[in-house]
Every structure is written in structure tokens, then in C-alpha cells.
Design a protein around this nucleic acid. Structure first.
Lengths: 67, 67
DNA sequence: TTGAAATGTAAACAAGACTTTACATGATTT
DNA sequence: AAATCATGTAAAGTCTTGTTTACATTTCAA
């Protein structure tokens, strides 16, 4: 799963900490998601969607994996 | 988080087992999600989106909770 | 009305998402 | 050079998502 979080964050001139605060998660969570360590939960993806006013599909790109 | 899985499944005339197989998860996972016991992961939500040819936003409805 | 298919549920467990604390690095700014 | 800010990362722990096995209930066709 790829995501455009870093770019969206840059477009909105936000630090990881500011984004984390806006979403109610820790900065490490944002960092980990940006670095591809794991995917956000669906509720968190929705929050990002509302915050950046973009559909989930325009923030995240699904990639096939083992499943 | 509400979802329209049960209806989509009915529209496609699929059992929980068939949907589970199509998505690569267990039947209990489908049942639990339909019954609102938990939300799917983002990757699983994407798979559902592709399978039913509907955006994630048209399958799931976000509702504010404690966060 | 029996039998099979579909659904609901539960418990124990594994895997993934997320937190907290903590420290290290690079880039600014003073 | 020193302090500060933003980012990267790691370990231990918690909570959520998903699996497996198993059994009970509903539904519906034979």
C-alpha cells in the first residue's frame, strides 16, 4: 500500500507532529505510515480523507501482496 | 463505522463463506464485520471495494467515536 | 420433518496498528 | 558552536483485526 501522506502534508505545510495532533494519533504513527511500516486502520484513513478533503482512493494506493 | 456489506453481498447473491473466500479471509471475519464487531483493515476494505466495484466511501460510513 | 446450508457466536491465539519513552541525526537559527 | 525543530528509528507494551476450531440456531429444500 502506497500513500501520498508526505506530499499532502507538504501541500498543507504541516509537520508530522501537527498532522498527528490533527488526527489524534502519535507522531510515530504518522512517521511509520509515511515510511510504509504499516497501513493505517480504516477509521484513521477516513480521518485523513476528511482532513485533506480527498477520497481514500486518492490518498492510498492498494498494491497486491501475499494474500 | 457502518457498512453495507450485507446488502452488497445480497445484491451479488453471495454467502458469507463465498465472500470470505473471494477476499481471502475467514467466514468469521466477514460475519464480525457485518455485525459491527470490528472494522476491516484498510487493505481488506480495498479488496472489498474492488470486488464490489464501489468506492470505499460507498461501502463504509465513518462515524465519530471516542477518538 | 429430516438434513443440509447459512448464519451467529465464543474462546484462544496470532498478527497488525498504535502508544509511550527514548535517543540519534540533519537542518536551521542565534 | 549551541540550541531548537523536524524527522527517523527502536523496544516494550496495549488494543484491534483476523484465524482456527467448535458448536448452536435459523432457514429452506427434499
Amino acid at each position: 500500500m502506497k500513500n501520498r501522506l508526505k506530499v499532502l502534508r507538504a501541500e498543507h505545510d504541516m509537520t508530522q507532529q501537527q498532522l498527528a495532533d490533527a488526527l489524534g494519533v502519535s507522531r510515530q504513527t504518522i512517521n511509520a505510515i509515511e515510511k510504509g511500516k504499516f497501513d493505517p486502520s480504516l477509521p484513521l484513513a477516513f480521518k485523513m480523507s476528511y482532513l485533506f478533503n480527498r477520497s481514500i482512493e486518492r490518498i492510498f494506493e492498494y498494491e497486491e501482496s501475499a494474500s
